[in-house]
């Protein structure tokens, strides 16, 4: 219980820090980016200018603390300002359209890659002397060294352009809408396969390598020798004795890896013009839509923090030592 409380406090605190970084960042930048942008974007509506001024702390009549307070109040009311590129739409409304796509695609792909990567890692650690294990390990060391977006480009080139088996991009074909029901869902799945495969395959190596190394460490433990000496079945040794212990550090190592994996996934969306948060981030960068850019950063960060929190809870359920606060 103390562990749970600690993790909850940490979650709240980390979100608070993310909010603060988000607030400070534009105010830290050298020069005066806000004015440059306002000047760059001729004919900007006054409300958009206000939005930028607020975002950059150009409301010079207010002290920084007042600005900070206003910022927190605004965010708590779901007010993230006005988007420049989608003017006069509110940032929150723009973002809300992209979120489900990203959560759907990235969520499924990440869970799949974690499951497959973990299973594969367990398998190659168990049979670590075989040539096949070595080959799999080498293959994923290689794949892991490529930027996701390039891997995406290659798949698009070969499986969408050269051989038009899959669509080049987008989340569903333009001809179907929610009204089409099953056809709409089918189209979504069809469009999600290729980007999903990129994210799954590219991030799989991470989970696989982590669990493999954990697994090899665990396999050298005395309790594995005891399990063998006791005459337990291979499956019980592999799963209940080795893998269950090897997965624990893997889940707590989720924090770092997930932040990295999500970065790659965002760029994958750009390659596939997938209408999620990553593609929107790309557009925001290109159109210098700073209010939107910051909102996206905030959302991704909060998303990662919440995923970490879930991992923390999961590990509490799986590790009796953590439940008792003994570790």
């Amino acid at each position: 219980m103390r562990y749970f409380l600690r993790r909850t406090m940490w979650l709240i605190f980390a979100i608070f820090v993310a909010l603060t970084i988000n607030f400070i960042l534009p105010r830290l930048m050298p020069g005066d980016p806000a004015m440059i942008i306002i000047n760059q974007l001729d004919g900007l509506q006054p409300q958009a200018i206000d939005s930028i001024r607020a975002a950059f702390g150009l409301e010079t009549d207010k002290s920084i603390f007042v600005q900070y307070w206003d910022y927190l109040v605004n965010i708590s009311q779901g007010d993230l300002g006005v988007s420049i590129s989608h003017y006069p739409a509110k940032v929150w409304d723009v973002l809300a359209k992209a979120l489900p796509w990203t959560i759907g695609l990235m969520g499924i792909a990440t869970v799949l890659s974690f499951i497959f990567g973990t299973m594969l890692g367990i398998a190659i650690a168990w049979k670590r002397k075989s040539k096949v294990s070595d080959a799999i390990l080498g293959l994923f060391l290689f794949i892991r060294s490529f930027p996701y977006f390039w891997f995406g480009l290659i798949l698009v080139y070969f499986f969408a352009f050269k051989n038009p088996w899959f669509p080049l991009g987008g989340a569903h074909s333009i001809s179907v809408t929610t009204a089409d029901g099953w056809a709409y869902i089918k189209s979504i799945i069809y469009h999600g396969l290729l980007p999903g495969a990129v994210i799954t395959i590219s991030s799989l190596g991470y989970w696989m390598l982590t669990i493999r190394n954990n697994m090899i460490n665990v396999l050298a433990e005395d309790y594995i020798t005891v399990a063998k000496a006791k005459g337990l079945s291979i499956n019980r040794i592999k799963n209940t004795y080795a893998a269950r212990n090897a997965i624990l550090p893997s889940i707590s190592g989720f924090a770092m890896a997930f932040g990295f994996v999500i970065g790659g996934s965002l760029v994958t969306e750009m390659v596939f013009s997938y209408p999620g948060v990553g593609f929107m981030l790309f557009q925001a960068v290109q159109q210098q839509d700073y209010p939107l850019l910051q909102a996206i950063f905030l959302f991704i960060t909060v998303g990662v923090l919440i995923s970490n929190f879930i991992a923390d809870i999961l590990i509490m359920l799986l590790d009796p030592r953590i439940r008792d606060g003994a570790k």
Partner: peptide, 20 residues
């Protein structure tokens, strides 16, 4: 630990896009 949990690529993108 703060830097560990904040996803780096989005942070990098935001920071880089501010640098003129």
């Amino acid at each position: 630990s703060i830097f560990l949990v904040i996803p780096s690529l989005p942070l990098i993108i935001v920071v880089a896009s501010y640098i003129t």
